[in-house]
Every structure is written in structure tokens, then in C-alpha cells.
């Protein structure tokens, strides 16, 4: 169920260049699933006015803590990055439909592909897949070494490979270049990242089952404002989908890329 709560900041730190890891505590955590997001109001004033949608990277129901990882680039996320331990943050969530972990058969292998700030939601996903006895292979693309994060965390869960645009970490190029080289064997792929990456992946694995998480400029986050509309392909009977409430995760082939 969607709730609004003033969550408490438990931890916050900069884990890579302009990349912040923020852990919040509250009741909302009990309803969270991998791939969902929270909609955060960074200030009680009108400046900035709208909430910021941020994907959930770790869910700990025992402690009631959830972690989000975000890039402090714009006005809103810069204000969020100033929050101190003990501060309250107005959170609406959990929102959207996450990754279906059950889509990968137990004992099977899942390929997780992330690009930049699309990597975080794959962390909770990977943990939940591993808990079900599923092997995970991680292939991540970043622009450069300085913005990479969670190398150790992912490495303990499965084989983790990097590609950077400038070649400062892992191989040089894009995720599809690395996949061409690795030729991983897997049952299902899960991906989150920029549109060109999602498009390239869909074309790269035309016959595989896959789930893609999308980003789009959002207003309300609950499906009411029609800001985050995506066109659909002929494979669905809908003319459009809303990224916030129908997604952000869609099966491969639903959204026109």
C-alpha cells in the first residue's frame, strides 16, 4: 500500500563522485519490493516544489531500513544530500511495480545489466535472486571509474564485470560490447539504465525473457498527472503506459524504444 511517512535518516555518505547512499528508517519499508521507488520531498518549502523519484537499492525489513543511492546533480538531490542523521524526510512510497524475481526458475541464472545510476535497484534484486538459489551475473556500465560504486557488494553476490566509456575501469565501451565478449549463459535478464542501453539490450537478446526498468520525468508518481507516459509496441492492447504506476519495470517488448 502507498503511504506517506516522515522517515528518519539513519546514515548518509558520498560513496562515489556526487553519488550518495542514504538509509532511511520507517514503516513503509515493510511493503517494499526490488525495483520499486520512493518519491521524496526534499524540502518542506515550495522550493523545489515536486518530489524526487529515487529507486530503492536495499530493503531490510528486520531493522525497518531502506537504502537509496542517487546522484546529487540537480537542485533537489543536492538538498537531499545535505540531510543529517536524525533528520526527517517526507517519503511517499513504495511506488510502482518492481522486478519479478520469480520469473527466473530456481537454480537458474539471471543476468543483471545496469548503466550508471540505473545500477542501484539491481542490488536488492540480486540479493533476493541469490536468496532463491539463483546465480547472478552482473554487467555494469559507467561513464568513468570515479562514479562506480558497490564493487564489493556485487562481487560477493556473483560474477561482476565493468565497462566504462573512457576505459578507466574494466573494458572500454558500452555494456553490449562487453556482453559480446563475455557471451554469458543465462535464463532471464533484468536491466536498468539509460534508454540507449535498454534499446541496445532488447536488440541484443531478441529471444530472451527480459525485464527493463525505465526512467522518465515524473510529476505525481502515482499515475494521476500523465507526465511520464511511454508509447507501447503492438505487443500490448494499451496505447500507452505510465512509467510511475504501470512500471517502472516492464517486460521486454512492451515499451516502444
Amino acid at each position: 500500500m502507498i503511504q506517506q511517512e516522515r522517515m528518519i535518516v539513519v546514515r548518509q555518505s558520498e560513496i562515489a563522485q556526487h553519488i550518495f547512499e542514504l538509509t532511511l528508517q520507517g514503516q513503509i519499508v515493510q511493503d517494499m519490493n526490488p525495483g520499486q521507488f520512493v518519491h521524496i520531498r526534499v524540502s518542506d518549502s515550495f522550493e523545489p516544489l515536486l518530489r524526487r523519484p529515487i529507486s530503492i537499492s536495499n530493503i531490510d525489513k528486520e531493522t525497518g531500513e531502506a537504502t537509496v543511492i542517487y546522484r546529487a546533480e540537480g537542485r533537489g538531490t543536492q538538498i537531499l544530500s545535505q540531510k543529517q542523521v536524525g533528520d526527517e524526510v517526507d517519503v511517499l512510497g513504495p511506488l510502482g511495480n518492481g522486478f519479478p524475481v520469480e520469473a527466473t526458475p530456481e537454480g537458474g541464472t539471471a543476468l543483471l545489466v545496469g548503466g550508471g545510476i540505473g545500477v542501484p535497484p539491481l542490488y536488492e534484486l540480486s540479493q533476493q535472486l541469490n536468496a532463491r538459489g539463483i546465480r547472478t551475473i552482473h554487467v555494469f556500465g559507467f561513464s568513468t571509474k570515479d562514479v562506480c560504486f558497490y564493487d564489493d557488494q556485487f562481487s560477493t553476490l556473483g560474477d561482476t564485470h565493468y565497462v566504462t566509456v573512457d576505459g578507466t575501469k574494466g573494458t572500454k565501451g558500452f555494456v553490449t560490447d562487453l556482453l559480446e565478449e563475455l557471451k554469458p549463459e543465462f535464463d532471464v535478464f533484468y536491466a536498468c539504465g539509460p534508454l540507449p542501453m535498454l534499446r541496445a539490450l532488447e536488440n541484443f537478446y531478441p529471444d530472451k525473457t527480459g525485464f527493463l526498468s525505465f526512467e522518465e520525468r515524473m510529476g505525481c508518481g502515482i499515475g494521476a498527472c500523465f507526465a511520464c507516459i511511454c508509447k507501447t509496441t503492438d505487443q500490448t492492447d494499451k496505447d500507452y503506459v505510465k512509467v510511475c504506476s504501470d512500471g517502472p519495470v516492464f517486460p521486454k517488448g512492451v515499451v516502444e524504444l
Binding site: E47, L49, R217, C225, A227
Partner: peptide, 14 residues
């Protein structure tokens, strides 16, 4: 077509 919204000072455009 999108983008359909943009935040502004104490407001938004749609």
C-alpha cells in the same frame, strides 16, 4: 510528446 512537465520556482509547467 514528453517531456510534458518542468519544475519552476514554486511551481511547475505542464
Amino acid at each position: 510528446p514528453t517531456p510534458r512537465v518542468a519544475e519552476t520556482a514554486a511551481g511547475m509547467l505542464n
